[in-house]
Simulated scan of single mutants.
Amino acid sequence: MNRLLAAWRSTCAIAYATYQEWAAYRSHMLISLFIGPTYFLVQVVIWQALLADGGTIGGYDRTALMSYYGAVLIVSTLVFDFADWNLQMLIRSGKFLTVLLRPMSHRGFALSQKLGHRCLGLWMEALPIWLILWLVFSIRLVPASTGWFVLSLALGFLIMFLVNYCVGTLAFWLTRTAGARRLIGFLRDVCAGVFLPLALFPHELQQLLFFLPFQFITYVPVQVLLGHYELAGIRLGIPEIVGCQALMALLMWGLSELLWRLGIRRFSAAGA
């Protein structure tokens, strides 16, 4: 119990320090207040043109699509992560050696940093974007079940971090990871339903995506917010899909631990 309390205090302290650090450079975050709604506006123009006759596509009409993309914008803002860049930078620059001397695991430290960073993003990015969607686009996003949405969002937050952390460990094997990170990041967003609802993908691809971690980052929290879930003809209740999300978080935690251990062994073997 004492160890858990000590770990919690360390997490809060790191998160608060990160919050204060990024608050000093909050102009970086304010840029998202322009980028996010602009991306959403592009989606509005595209889908209004495609569904000008009032039809539907993949079970979505214009109203449903606008709600979907609005929810994607909010969820993507809240789960945003840069653990892959941070870890590869430490390894490539040699500063990783100092990480090994800390009494706290780097994964726990990085997760605490992300927590502080996104707490700042909650009121500086997500809340203003929510108000813009409501006041400008008349899209009021209210969770069908607040408790399940918060839990699903927290799990998506964790899975996003773990996926990126696994990508960051590639720096143990690769000299430069920028290209790999961009490619994997793009595929992650495609498979998470950021650019298109996964229901619009071919059925066979939907079946594959159901078993990959990416849909649990964005698509699942969005569907939980909207109050229903279906993919590849599989319909699950909100508690069931959130349970699947929790299982995926455990699997990704195990994968990140495996890659970390293998990477540390290689890093040591390199004579660092």
Rank of each mutant, 00 (worst) to 15 (best):
P197T: 07
V190Y: 03
C191N: 14
L200F: 09
I159M: 00
I132H: 02
M124P: 00
A171Q: 09
L158D: 04
L196W: 06
I184Y: 07
S145G: 09
E125L: 11
C166F: 00
R182L: 14
A171G: 06
P143E: 02
C166K: 01
A199G: 15
G147Q: 02
F201K: 10
L141Q: 08
T177C: 10
H117C: 06
C166W: 04
L187P: 00
L151S: 12
G116F: 13
R188D: 03
G156H: 03
L196G: 03
G156P: 03
L158N: 12
R182F: 08
M160A: 11
L200G: 11
H117V: 06
P143C: 03
V150A: 14
G193L: 04
F161W: 10
I132K: 03
H117G: 11
A199N: 12
V163K: 04
L183S: 08
V194T: 13
R182E: 11
I139D: 05
G121V: 06
A154G: 12
P128H: 14
F161G: 02
C119F: 15
G179C: 05
L133E: 03
R182W: 05
L155E: 01
V190D: 00
F195E: 01
L151P: 08
Y165I: 07
A154N: 07
A126F: 05
L158A: 15
R118A: 05
W148G: 05
A178I: 09
V163M: 14
G147K: 00
L170F: 12
C119R: 08
I139Y: 04
V194N: 13
R140V: 09
A154H: 07
F195R: 00
L200E: 11
A180T: 13
V150P: 07
L155R: 01
P128M: 07
G185P: 01
L155H: 04
L158K: 11
V194F: 13
L155P: 02
L151F: 09
L133T: 10
L120M: 12
C191W: 15
L183H: 00
C119S: 11
L131I: 15
A192M: 04
T146N: 02
C119T: 08
I132W: 06
G116R: 10
L174S: 03
A192L: 04
T175V: 12
F149H: 07
C191F: 15
L183M: 07
F137A: 09
E125N: 10
L141G: 03
L162S: 08
T175S: 13
F157I: 00
S138W: 11
R188T: 08
L187C: 15
W148F: 12
A199W: 03
S138D: 13
L198C: 06
M160G: 09
L200V: 14
R118E: 14
W148S: 06
R181F: 02
L153R: 02
L174E: 02
S145I: 00
R176W: 05
R140C: 13
R181H: 06
W123K: 04
C166S: 05
R140G: 14
L133R: 05
F172S: 11
A199V: 09
F157L: 04
L174D: 03
G193S: 04
V142Q: 06
